[in-house]
């Protein structure tokens, strides 16, 4: 259940930054999570709520923007959307590609008062 560690990292990062901004409450946090990042969104939402307890982020909303996975096929020089970790290039059926998007795991912004 690495989502708990991820959730705790998120709360840690935003609470520190919010403190620097003299915030007394964190209303919401906006994330970007790639589809191939290895994160279960449901599990992360559940853990985030728990991780926020007894911090100024208690009760904060979590907005997750999921990023579709995109790759560049080195065999046919084309970009394509990947559905899962082991789907081949739809044009040439090869697995020889470089991932361009889909592994994101970042905090975009947060809202404070």
């Amino acid at each position: 259940m690495h989502e708990m560690t991820i959730a705790m990292n998120i709360v840690d990062i935003v609470c520190k930054q919010a403190n620097d901004e003299n915030a007394h409450i964190i209303n919401s946090v906006d994330l970007e999570i790639g589809e191939l990042s290895g994160i279960m969104i449901d599990s992360l939402e559940f853990c985030f709520e728990a991780a926020c307890k007894n911090t100024i982020a208690n009760g904060a909303g979590l907005n997750i923007n999921t990023i579709k996975a995109e790759a560049f096929c080195k065999s046919c020089n084309k970009n394509f959307t990947i559905e899962s970790d082991f789907s081949p290039c739809p044009t040439c059926d090869n697995f020889n590609y470089e991932l361009l998007k889909g592994k994101e795991l970042s905090i975009k912004s947060f809202n404070i008062d």
Binding site: I13, I107, S109, I112
Partner: peptide, 13 residues
């Protein structure tokens, strides 16, 4: 409230 943009990798640390 106030929006703070940070663009930080969650696993940065």
């Amino acid at each position: 409230g106030r929006e703070i943009v940070i663009e930080t990798d969650i696993l940065a640390k």
